[in-house]
Amino acid sequence: MNLRFFDANVSIGRPMNKAMYEPLADVKALLAHMKKTGVGKALVWHVAQHDGSPCEGNSMLANAIRGQRSLYGCWALLPPNVDDVITPDFFRRMQKSRIVALRVFPDMHRYLLNRVVFGRFLDEVTARRIPLLLSMEFAVTWPAVYALLKDYPSLTCIIADLGAWSVDRYTYPLLETYPGVHIESSFLACTDGGVERMVEKFGAGRIVFGTAMPRRYTESAMLQLVHAEISDTDKALIASGNLERLVAGVELS
């Protein structure tokens, strides 16, 4: 079967420290890579949102993806009432800039991920069904994820970059307890039988395809999914259907 891929986890921009991987320096490089690998759509963030300033990084991302129909963006959050990220017209600006999801980097940006810090703002994010991406590779800890979801149990979130070694003992209780929790597949696909067991226990609707390009190879998660021992319907949901559904459900107006 020919799967349509919508990648939930792609970054552009050059990191502060030189890495082994060749970064996707700009949207042109990203689109060329997507064409080469057969990825149709992508949910993108900019490395400057993490390494530099979320304010400037968000703006850079919005400018970079402007006019690109195959790309959607993720903005990085900072706590309300401290910096200038969450402004009164925040959601309207998201809509104008094709931003359909949010990211947080609490350790790097020195804040806590809970109700004391985010108050009613994350209630509104919850009500608007805006997915919050929590990357375990970028200094979000498991206790922080558990604390966040205890405070905002209906939040739509995508836990990304799980780590190479299986973490099902962390993820399964969250999937069991919180219906808005989804798992990004770039590292889940790494565990032999990881995708299959999660589909069996929780259904394919809880997994979204992701590659972590350019830090990891796009073909890894792709080849695993293409030959996974799940139904073609489930493969299509994971490859793009689930993320399409989440994006369509976002209310920004």
Partner: peptide
Amino acid sequence: GTDSPWFNHHHHIGAVLGA
């Protein structure tokens, strides 16, 4: 190598194909 049963063969094969 894959550390099997840790890592899925297709995942690692995919990486070699993508490099």
